[in-house]
Amino acid sequence: MEILDPTTEAVTQTIAWAPRPASLSGKRVALIDNTKFNSDNLLVRIGNILKHEHGVAECRMFRKHNASVPAHPEIVAEMETWADLVVAGIGD
């Protein structure tokens, strides 16, 4: 007998990756705050390390509407024009 596969077969697609910068020196870094308790405090510390130990010029916090949605288009557009790098991926 035969049965049918219940899973979704992945569809291959090509994604254009941004090139990794050779150095962080002088770069502007966007930090995405997902709104969870202390995520902003953690990101401030990360920002300070990036500035003091890796020569990053400036860090700016961008706040999502809430933790369960992607960053909204307005802040993505702002990050695109302002930032060289983005730190995302805060969990619990």
Binding site: M1, E2, I3, L4, D5, P6, E9
Partner: peptide, 14 residues
Amino acid sequence: LTSKRLSVRDEADA
């Protein structure tokens, strides 16, 4: 139906 098909011996095997 476009899902992948898999062969099994019987219901218990499935």
